[in-house]
């Protein structure tokens, strides 16, 4: 019994469970083609359910998964590979990419301020949500600088990325958008790295453009934040 409990609370078990849930999500999506069944979303919700139902210590479980989390940094650096493979196309489209990234950053910030006031959100929460379109490290810096709350920003950035990577493909389908440049820009400038993962799944060109958009949208957000007070 004790051995069993030890195995169940080991790091390997946590990672295995994550892999199984992710594979299950992939299988479910392949079977149904239903966009809400993204492997990331399915695995996340299943793991959350597991933590709540089995009454697992959240902090301990997340430390168990730190082996996966560790790859996030090197992963962003590795985006140089898909970008390099499409470098000619990116050079040719650098102007639309810059324009789209800037528009993405500005519209996201404006929407958050306007909607936040409309929905009567706390000022501190609005500030925490403002940098949501940029990658986590940029978002944290921006949030702290303009008076947001770090942990809320982290949660909001992740939620934005996951939600965007789920709803944008639906919009793309409805509007029958096929241009990989627009697919890449739409995903990269609104849902950064998770959007880029989705874009890479759809099309190599879209993925590379999304990777570049993620970088420029983050930088644009940081620049615009200099003027927010």
């Amino acid at each position: 019994m004790i051995i069993m409990r030890e195995i169940l609370s080991s790091q390997a078990f946590g990672i295995m469970l994550t892999l199984v849930f992710y594979l299950f999500g992939g299988w479910l999506y392949k079977k149904t083609r239903f966009p809400l069944f993204s492997p990331l979303l399915v695995a996340t919700l299943l793991l959350m359910g597991y933590i709540l139902i089995a009454d697992i210590d959240m902090a301990v479980f997340l430390t168990d998964l730190s082996g996966i989390h560790l790859f996030l940094g090197p992963l962003i650096v590795s985006l140089a590979v898909p970008i390099m493979k499409q470098i000619d196309l990116i050079k040719k489209n650098i102007l639309p990419i810059l324009v789209g990234s800037f528009v993405g950053a500005v519209t996201s910030i404006i929407a958050v301020i306007v909607l936040g006031r409309w929905f009567n959100l706390d000022q501190a929460i609005i500030y925490s949500v403002i940098p949501k379109a940029s990658t986590t490290p940029i978002a944290i810096e921006v949030s702290e600088k303009i008076g947001g709350i770090r942990s809320i920003t982290v949660a909001v950035v992740v939620m934005t990325a996951v939600i965007g990577a789920v709803i944008i493909p639906i919009i793309l389908k409805i509007l029958k958008i096929k241009d990989p440049r627009i697919i890449g820009m739409g995903l990269g400038s609104t849902s950064q790295a998770v959007g880029t993962a989705k874009a890479l799944e759809i099309d190599a060109t879209a993925g590379a453009i999304s990777g570049v958009a993620l970088v420029f949208t983050g930088i644009a957000t940081a620049l615009i934040a200099l003027f927010i007070h």
């Binding site: 997340l62 989390h69 949660a155």
Partner: peptide, 14 residues
Amino acid sequence: MAFFFIPAAVSVLE
């Protein structure tokens, strides 16, 4: 890529 974001996404629960 998406796989490596699972821990970050799960931590939203916190």
